[in-house]
């Protein structure tokens, strides 16, 4: 009838071997840069040299510099941490309030609201920063005092990012709500007693992503903290170390800073990985 060169099982085995090889190569490519980063963080030789990977001299000097009074690193770290803390609470609250209202209720302005938010989202986010900077400036919440300003900026409009939460809530059967109402609960009680407890995975996902956000935010932080070293967050601060004027001296410090910033986030991520994956695979696309 047909070729008998390879039985089905043998064919599958070769395919699997090739797959394993590819996966191993992929894993290497994705991990290598971080391994290099960590290695260079421990190199206390010439702090500006970007070329060598293997440390010229092993030591913790770079880390010491970060924590010394010469660098603003601690300040930046502290700033970012505070912002992230407030952001994860505030953003989660805002997003879920919006998502719940849009998912569970039907009111006349519902579709127009969603459309308006869709349209507003099409404008580059940065556009709002120009105005907000002036306003916050007049309120004294910029430059050195950038942190409160950034917190406000991060939380205030976060309701627009309701899509993942709403997608998830849409999949919860409304019969739960109805049963609770028959039992005599007000809509508020349904919200915090019945539905929200069931959203634990998505809540954790939202908390996680909103916590991680401020650590990597460059554009907003750079705008609001304009002109001040004290008000920067880690992203803007570390980037300033790498700008051409400074690169002579600061490259290794940057690596060390990167390691310090990355580690807590990675640990947090490791523990909550399950929720993150669930949020991405479940909610991110349904929206």
């Amino acid at each position: 009838m047909e070729r008998r060169s390879m039985g089905m099982a043998a064919k599958r085995r070769t395919a699997n071997i090739i797959t394993y090889v590819i996966l191993v190569m992929i894993s290497i490519i994705w991990i290598i840069p971080f391994i290099f980063l960590i290695l260079q963080a421990f190199d206390v030789g010439n702090p500006g040299l970007t070329g060598n990977v293997w440390p010229e001299k092993w030591g913790l000097g770079n880390f010491a510099y970060l924590f010394s009074s010469e660098s603003n690193f601690l300040r930046w770290y502290f700033n970012t941490f505070i912002i992230a803390l407030f952001a994860c609470v505030g953003q989660t609250a805002m997003q879920f309030m919006m998502a719940y209202a849009l998912s569970r209720f039907r009111f006349k302005l519902r579709k127009p609201m969603m459309n308006v938010m869709l349209v507003l989202g099409m404008f580059p986010g940065f556009l709002t920063m120009i105005v907000l900077y002036e306003v916050l400036n007049s309120l004294g919440m910029t430059s050195d005092n950038a942190v409160p300003g950034l917190i406000l900026v991060n939380i205030a409009s976060s309701g627009m990012g309701y899509y993942v939460a709403k997608g998830f809530l849409d999949t919860m059967p409304k019969s739960l709500d109805e049963a609770a109402e028959v039992d005599g609960a007000t809509k508020f009680q349904v919200f915090y007693k019945v539905v929200m407890p069931l959203c634990k995975p998505i809540v954790i996902y939202t908390v996680l992503t909103s916590f991680m956000g401020p650590w990597g935010d460059y554009i907003f932080a750079a705008t609001i903290a304009k002109g001040s070293q004290e008000g920067m967050n880690v992203a803007t601060g570390l980037n300033s170390w790498l700008s051409t004027a400074n690169i002579g001296g600061y490259y290794k410090y940057f690596c060390a800073g990167g390691v310090i910033v990355a580690i807590p986030v990675i640990i947090l991520f490791l523990f909550l990985q399950k929720y993150y994956v669930e949020g991405v695979t479940g909610g991110a696309v349904k929206g």
């Binding site: 994705w30 991990i31 840069p33 971080f34 290099f36 980063l37 991680m212 650590w215 990597g216 460059y218 880690v234 992203a235 570390l238 980037n239 790498l242 940057f254 690596c255 990167g258 910033v261 990355a262 986030v265 990675i266 947090l268 991520f269 490791l270 990985q273 993150y276 994956v277």
Partner: peptide, 14 residues
């Protein structure tokens, strides 16, 4: 997934 955990700006700048 771990490479997502590292803040993007670090990966990019490095």
């Amino acid at each position: 997934v771990m490479s997502i955990a590292v803040p993007q700006f670090i990966s990019l700048l490095y």
